[in-house]
């Protein structure tokens, strides 16, 4: 089980901030493909991966990152702090 978190407009498109996902996905990209196959709202949120960033266990990562042993994956748009 992996906790999947969504922030900003990704959260708005999906409709909630967090869910637990039962998955055997090997990488973040595989997890995205599984989610997109579920419902149109995931398709809408993940339509353009270049517009998204991903954090794996709270560290900025990439879509080819492996998921073995990972507890938390978060998807969000480029950050706008400061």
């Amino acid at each position: 089980m992996i906790d999947v978190l969504y922030f900003a407009w990704v959260r708005e498109r999906i409709g909630f901030p967090k869910e637990r996902v039962e998955t055997t996905a090997a990488t973040v990209a595989d997890l995205v493909a599984e989610l997109k196959a579920r419902e149109p709202r995931y398709e809408a949120a993940f339509a353009d991966l270049t517009a998204l960033r991903v954090a794996v266990d709270q560290t900025l990562s990439t879509f080819d990152a492996p998921l073995a042993g990972v507890r938390e994956v978060a998807f969000f748009p480029p950050m706008t702090g400061g």
Binding site: A74, M79, T80, G81
Partner: peptide, 11 residues
């Protein structure tokens, strides 16, 4: 770095 590497989003 805070502008683009700290996870904040403004609306």
């Amino acid at each position: 770095y805070l502008k683009s590497r700290a996870p904040f989003w403004k609306k």
